[in-house]
Write a protein that binds this DNA or RNA. Structure first.
Lengths: 106, 106
DNA sequence: AAGTTATATAACTGTATTATTATATAAATA
DNA sequence: TATTTATATAATAATACAGTTATATAACTT
């Protein structure tokens, strides 16, 4: 699975948001996501870890998950490729952005 | 489906790469992706369109697909949120980047 | 040592995604 | 007008994904 797939899941993106506040244990994360089970939380955290989006520190039985930039850097590098494209046609970018605002987006 | 899901598929990312060179018709795209069928190409293009990643121009029976920045801007905005986080800990970002290079990434 | 706490993994299920083949639609051409 | 060209959609099958419950593992506490 790629980092693209990792951030494609809305729950995982929400998890990154929570971890951006501060590092948390699995138990903390389970509390922060009451609609899903503990195993589901653990599996999401595993995916985030496998894609360089979080790191884990061990403290006794606890695992402390922290946001890690690696995976996000990979995503950013990918987008940067297209920013070059945008800069070539900045005028139409402006046009698209304002049009999108009117349409209400996604 | 979100723009995150749209770019999660490797074939669709490859399609964006091809369209970044220049706009193409569906037939062009089918030729560029010989391992998948025409309907598969059409469906991928539809997803890209629905998520603001491409636009279509009609020319007789042909549909000319072009790269559009909208969706990528949405992605970039999302990542920007985390860049703030990174800037708070730029030192560890540097460390992570060099470590990632050694590991060979994904 | 026995029980509790914290987390991960296994087995499984339902749903979503991606692909295929067949077919529909629409415009150009002979 | 009949045929060809270009593309989209429908029906369907295979695979991937996210969730569940049950259970294993490891460390702390009593």
């Amino acid at each position: 699975m790629s980092v693209f797939t990792a951030v494609a899941d809305p729950t995982r993106r929400a998890m990154l948001d929570v971890l951006a506040e501060h590092s948390r244990t699995v138990t903390d994360m389970v509390a922060a996501f009451p609609t899903i089970s503990q195993p589901a939380v653990s599996k999401h955290l595993r995916v985030l870890k496998e894609n360089g989006l979080v790191t884990v520190q061990i403290n006794a039985q606890q695992r402390i998950y922290s946001l890690q930039p690696n995976g996000l850097v990979e995503l950013d590098n990918w987008i940067s490729k297209y920013k070059l494209f945008w800069s070539k046609r900045l005028d139409s970018l402006e046009e698209h952005l304002s049009k999108n605002k009117e349409e209400g987006g996604i």
